[in-house]
């Protein structure tokens, strides 16, 4: 059902966990739909220095969470905002059609974390 790369990210997910002093947190999805994702980011000089996740969901939800942390780390905020669901799915070498919404969730989670970071920055100013 899933290709090797997806199974690799699912069984050995990268960057699992919470960042205690995260600069931004994105919470997307809900348990009713069957997947829920929290993305935590650290930002320094406009660059994502660390990205971690916690996910409740299927194999695709976990694999896309892992993948997006890998893609996002080292990117500028502007670059990270341009990451789309298709980028995540493509990096994973494709997802079953019925699971495409999972990659949407990962992109949304990252973008929500950045928005949270920006809101916090505005408050500080």
């Amino acid at each position: 059902m899933y290709n090797e790369k997806v199974m690799d990210h699912f069984s050995n997910p990268r960057n699992v966990g919470e960042i205690e002093d995260a600069d931004g947190i994105g919470e997307v999805g809900n348990p009713t739909c069957g997947d829920m994702m929290n993305i935590y980011i650290k930002v320094k000089d406009g660059i994502l220095t660390d990205v971690k996740f916690k996910t409740f969901g299927c194999g695709a939800a976990i694999a896309t969470s892992s993948m997006i942390t890998e893609i996002a780390i080292g990117k500028t905020i502007e670059e990270a905002l341009e990451i789309t669901r298709n980028d995540v799915a493509e990096e994973l070498g494709g997802l079953p059609q019925v699971k495409m919404h999972c990659s949407n969730l990962a992109a949304d989670g990252l973008h929500a974390a950045i928005e949270d970071y920006r809101n916090k920055q505005n408050i500080k100013k």
Binding site: S11, G34, G57, C58, G59, A60
Partner: peptide, 23 residues
């Protein structure tokens, strides 16, 4: 936790079961 994830990990250990999860 979600059933498909459990199913996949069990399958990696050679165990075949099924789930009622929507996913």
């Amino acid at each position: 936790i979600e059933g498909e994830s459990m199913l996949l990990f069990l399958d990696m250990k050679g165990i075949a079961i099924s789930t009622g999860s929507a996913c």
